[in-house]
Design a protein around this nucleic acid. Structure first.
Lengths: 263, 263
DNA sequence: TGATATAACTTCTCTAGACGAGTAGATGAG
DNA sequence: CTCATCTACTCGTCTAGAGAAGTTATATCA
């Protein structure tokens, strides 16, 4: 039977640790020691009930603990499996360097080309509205100044990997390709530079949290996987904030890498 | 009764969305719309059972959903409360700049002073051993080269905020203050620079995931809070990796900020 | 052979209880 | 008044079921 070999330990009734926690400990340990390896099926609820001599809910509580820790995938009708870590995409801090844009590619498609994946953009909308306070702050705008809002979802080989919402002051974007669905080669940064807003620097603010249900759906997230929220602000050579980009991505699929000078 | 005003909606029995999910939706919505504000107590399980006319486990399943999303705190014997966001500590990318060290302060105590909190270090151990493969890689060492391993936990005003493990090649650290429990003013970076290893740059690799049970304990993490893992490598002016520092911190209490030149 | 039905599995949702354990306010004894 | 106890309220753990829903392999039928 699947994963049968891991059913070796028993509950310690003398322990004051809850039974379901003890069972979770056993299974976690089996995963850590690779007695249950990546992708392998755990014993079924029925098997675990029989082995430990407990009720179904106790087993399900134990399995939920592992699920919440991001260690397992549960597939309805199939079983519970040790989660395989997805391939990690490494986001380098130079990914918005000018040289990439000069090749006529936006950052995302340049990156996709590098790893040989098919890039795709999805659910693209462009509207004009007032910015959230947080965004107005970063752009140095009054709350009631209009901005162009570009929302989209990025996919690699058909799988969603990232959602992004860009905010550009309307006086820079209105009636330019930036307010069009397709902003042209090199993306909106290339357009901003053509308009004389040569980019000087970016700031990136990184936070992490559990996803909202909408985010989980949009990014096909499995339970127990947090998201990165990355808010990037672009400044031109005059020191003016010209874009804020708010992106959300599955934290298990990304590593963010930064270079820092020691001054 | 606590939070009674939010019990307005009922279950839609025609919907094929699970009852516990509908209840979770109601409560999540109440939190989002601030009908339940930060710190406020949710209706008790008993009240929710009576209102929705369902069994206790159904209510508990709904509450678990919110818990997993990091929206609520459950306090045994007291009730379930809307989670208040902790004050966010902002980690700037220049926090290891030389000027801070020159004042004789390590990065952590400098930062604590800035926000007026009492810094503390805890569970400090120094041993010599072989580095994990990942660390050896970053330091450009063979797997069997010894390193000095400094582990510790940082606290602010008595509350744990971060764990850190530093790895320094033994030939740089052995029989120096770096291998002592107290490395002296300015921390180990100051000592490395005194030995001629002037620091030139750092790299930081950021990932996020759910904590292990040990991490949750060490950092007093509440359920539904992910952790940042930040692996910093320090390079001297000769381009040699002189330290790898592996830190783990509660993601809800941190914002990592980076400055990127546009090249 | 190839499609279909079935059986045997899996997890998911939900019920209806029982007792344990932590908290906090009321009560009563000293 | 102070302190201890009681009581009523929280959530935590666990039992023992039931039927639904999804998956998969096998057996059966055309």
């Amino acid at each position: 039977m699947a994963g049968d070999g891991v059913l070796t330990q028993m509950i310690d009734p003398a322990s004051d640790r809850a039974v379901y926690k003890q069972i979770a400990d056993h299974l976690r340990d089996a995963i850590a020691r690779a007695r249950l390896h990546e992708g392998e099926q755990l014993p079924s609820e029925t098997q675990l009930m029989a082995h430990y001599g407990v009720a179904r809910m106790t087993i399900r509580n134990a399995l939920r603990v592992l699920q919440d820790e991001g260690l397992t995938n549960t597939e309805h009708g199939r079983g519970v499996y040790v989660r395989a870590r997805p391939p990690v995409r490494r986001l380098a801090s130079d990914r918005f360097a000018q040289r990439h844009r000069k090749e006529g590619k936006a950052a995302f498609s340049a990156e996709a080309a590098q790893i040989g994946a098919r890039p795709e953009v999805d659910m693209l909308t462009v509207i004009e509205s007032r910015p959230p306070a947080e965004v107005a702050d970063r752009l140095g705008l009054a709350d009631d100044t209009e901005v162009v809002v570009r929302s989209r979802r990025y996919l690699l080989d058909g799988k969603p990997v990232e959602t992004a919402v860009s905010y550009i002051p309307a006086d820079l974007a209105r009636e330019t390709p930036i307010a069009e669905l397709n902003p042209g080669p090199g993306g909106i940064y290339a357009r901003l530079e053509e308009q004389g807003h040569t980019l000087a620097r970016f700031t990136e603010d990184v936070t992490a949290r559990m996803p909202t249900p909408e985010e989980a759906k949009l990014l096909s997230l499995r339970p127990g996987v947090p998201v990165f929220r990355l808010v990037r602000t672009a400044y031109d050579v005059g020191g003016r904030g010209v874009e804020v980009c708010d992106t959300v991505m599955a934290a298990d699929a990304y590593q963010l890498s930064y270079e820092l000078p020691a001054h």
